[in-house]
Amino acid sequence: MKYAYSFLAVIALILIAWLGSQIPGMQYFFGVAVPYLAIMVFLGGFVYRVVYWAKSPVPFSIQTSCGQAKSLDFIKPNRLECPTTNAEVVARMALEVLTFRSLFRNTKSEIYDGPKITYESSKWLWLFGLMFHYSFLIIVIRHLRLFLNPVPEAIAWLDWADSMFEIGTPAMYMTDAGLLIGLLFLFTRRLFNRQVRFLSLLNDYFPLVLLFAIGVTGVLMRMFLRDGVDINAIKQLAVGLATFSPVISTDIGAIFYIHLFLVCILLIYFPFSKLMHLAGVFLSPTRNMRNNSREVRHINPWNPDIKPHSYAGYEDEFREYMVEAGIPVEKEPTPQKDEA
C-alpha cells in the first residue's frame, strides 16, 4: 500500500501542474513563483538541517575502524580504512562518497553451495545505486546549460559526452537511461526483496517515484513531445530565473510545467527527508573522524564531572583485609576501639 500511495501522490502532483498550467495566468505561478519558493525552501531547509545537526557536539571519538590502525612501525596501517590524519580522513570520505566503498564491502568467500545465480546479490545494490547517483549528478550539471548564457565549455562538453553514442534523434543521453534504470532497480528491489519491503516506508517509495516521474517527463520533453516545447522559451525563462528577471512565454508546453513542478516538489521535499543523506554522510562521526583517539585527546564539551569511587573510600572499607594480605595501604589501621 505504501508504494501505491506514492504513485497516487505523484499522479496528483502531475495533474495539479498539468491542469494548473492550462489556466491563463497560472503559468507565472508555475514557472516563476513555485520555482523561487522551492529554491528558497530547499536552501533554507538544507542550511537549517545542517545547522541543526552541527549544533550538537560530537562528544566521543567513535570512528569505525575498517582496517589495520597505525601502531607499530613494522605493521602496515590501512590508511584508507582506518585513517589517522586529516588527509587520510578526506581520502576515506572521498572513497565513500565517490565509490560507495561501504556498500561494496560485501566480499564473499569462495565456497558456494548451489547455483551461482544469486552470486554477490548485494553488489547489485552497489552497482545500480552508483549508476543512479552518478547519472543524477551529471543530469543536474547538464541542466546548468539552461541557466547560463553563454554555456560554459565544460558543460557543453559534458552534454556532448553524455550523448556521444548518438542513439535516436535527438541523441539520447546515457545518463537519462542510467537514471531511469537505476531507479527502476531500486524500486523493484524495494518491492520484491521481502526483507527490504518489510522495512520500507512511504518515505522510501515516494522519492523514487517522484524522481522517476521527473526523469520520464524530462525524456518525453526531449525525445517525444518536442513539438509542443519551445526550447528557446525555456532557456529564456531559466536564464531569467537565474538573473532575477524572469520572462514567461506562452509557447512553453504543459509537459515542461509538469517536469518543473515535480522538480520543485523534490526541492521542497528534500530538506525534510532522508534525501538529506547527501549532507549527512559528510558529518557521520563513524566515518569522518580520525582513529587517533589514543594519540590526541578528543574533547567532550559537556564532559560531566564524575569522580570514581575514591581509593580512600575503598581502603577504608577493606583496610584490615589488605593489611592482613600484605597489600600496601595509605593509612595504617587504627586500633579497634571498644566504645560501644
Partner: peptide, 23 residues
Amino acid sequence: RLEKFRSLKIFMDCCVRCGACAD
C-alpha cells in the same frame, strides 16, 4: 541526547533503508 550527540541526529535522519546492513 539529541542535543548531546550529533551521531544520534545524523543516524536518525540519514538512513535511507537500503537494507545493506540487514543481513
